[in-house]
Amino acid sequence: MDVFMKGLSKAKEGVVAAAEKTKQGVAEAAGKTKEGVLYVGSKTKEGVVHGVATVAEKTKEQVTNVGGAVVTGVTAVAQKTVEGAGSIAAATGFVKKDQLGKNEEGAPQEGILEDMPVDPDNEAYEMPSEEGYQDYEPEA
């Protein structure tokens, strides 16, 4: 019985440690998101679009440190934060509304985080759909 109880105690310690790591990862992701939003706020009209992409990228980098179902929630929060940063930029006159959601080359930025393969159960990952990809044929 002692062996059984000791095993359960060790398992509990492992769960607590994993929860603490997840909590730490979420806190880091939130900190990076805040950094990115402050970065966007300090940019001029020309830099705002690039700044919004930076927020998304920093958040995406930190999301990889967070495991399990938390990833889905962090990704949703990050996307809403990026959308909010863009709205703030438009409201303050840093950028025109028609410039939001495009990178410096004018290509749409939507789907940055949505296409990231995420499995809350950590069982399997699927690649994003290939609808947006084109076949590449090298020139002879």
Rank of each mutant, 00 (worst) to 15 (best):
A91D: 06
V37F: 07
E57T: 11
N122K: 07
E123G: 13
M127I: 10
V55L: 10
E57K: 11
K43E: 00
K32I: 13
M116A: 15
G25N: 12
E83K: 11
E131D: 08
A124K: 09
I88Q: 05
E61C: 10
G93K: 04
V48H: 00
E110F: 07
V55Y: 02
K10P: 00
N103M: 10
V16R: 08
E137C: 10
K97Q: 03
Y133E: 08
E137I: 13
A17H: 01
E28Q: 04
G25K: 14
E126T: 07
Y125T: 13
A56V: 14
K12N: 01
V55K: 01
V118A: 03
L8M: 02
E28N: 09
D98Q: 14
S87V: 03
A85M: 13
K12W: 10
T72E: 07
G25Y: 14
V52K: 00
G84H: 07
E126C: 14
I88A: 07
P117A: 04
G7V: 14
G14F: 07
A78G: 09
V52W: 08
T75S: 05
K12A: 05
T44I: 04
E20R: 03
T44L: 06
T44G: 08
E123Y: 07
S9T: 03
T72S: 01
I112E: 10
E20H: 15
E20L: 01
V16C: 07
A107M: 04
Q134F: 03
V40Q: 00
V48E: 01
N103E: 06
N122G: 09
A56P: 06
K10D: 03
E114A: 14
G51N: 09
G51L: 08
K10V: 10
A56S: 07
V37D: 00
T72P: 00
G106S: 09
G31V: 08
G51E: 01
G84P: 03
A30Y: 13
K96L: 14
K23W: 15
Q79F: 07
V70T: 04
G93H: 04
P128F: 12
A27G: 06
A56H: 11
A89S: 09
K34N: 03
V52D: 00
V40E: 00
D121R: 07
G132R: 05
T33S: 06
V26G: 00
K102Q: 09
D115S: 10
K97C: 13
P138S: 01
A17R: 15
S129H: 12
E139A: 05
E130W: 13
L38G: 08
E28S: 06
A11C: 00
E13A: 08
D119E: 12
A29C: 13
D121P: 14
K23N: 04
E126H: 13
K45H: 05
V118D: 13
S129P: 09
V16M: 11
V74C: 12
E126W: 11
N103R: 13
A27F: 13
V16A: 07
Q79R: 01
K45S: 07
E28P: 01
V118N: 07
E123W: 01
G51R: 06
N103D: 10
H50R: 15
E46D: 07
L100R: 02
E105T: 12
T64Q: 03
V15N: 00
L8I: 00
D135A: 02
E137T: 05
E57F: 10
V3S: 03
G36R: 15
G93F: 08
A90K: 13
P128W: 01
F4W: 07
K80I: 11
K43V: 15
K96I: 14
I112H: 13
S129I: 03
D119K: 11
D115H: 06
V118F: 05
Y133M: 15
V82T: 03
S42Q: 07
D98V: 09
G47C: 11
E61L: 04
N122I: 07
T72N: 09
V63Y: 09
A78K: 07
N103T: 12
T92R: 01
E123V: 12
Q109G: 02
N122H: 12
D135Y: 13
K96N: 08
D135E: 11
S9R: 14
A27C: 03
K96S: 12
A30F: 05
T72Q: 02
V118C: 11
G106K: 11
V82S: 08
A89W: 15
E61R: 02
N122S: 13
F4M: 04
V82L: 11
E28I: 05
V55W: 15
D98F: 03
T33L: 10
T72H: 00
G86R: 12
Q79V: 03
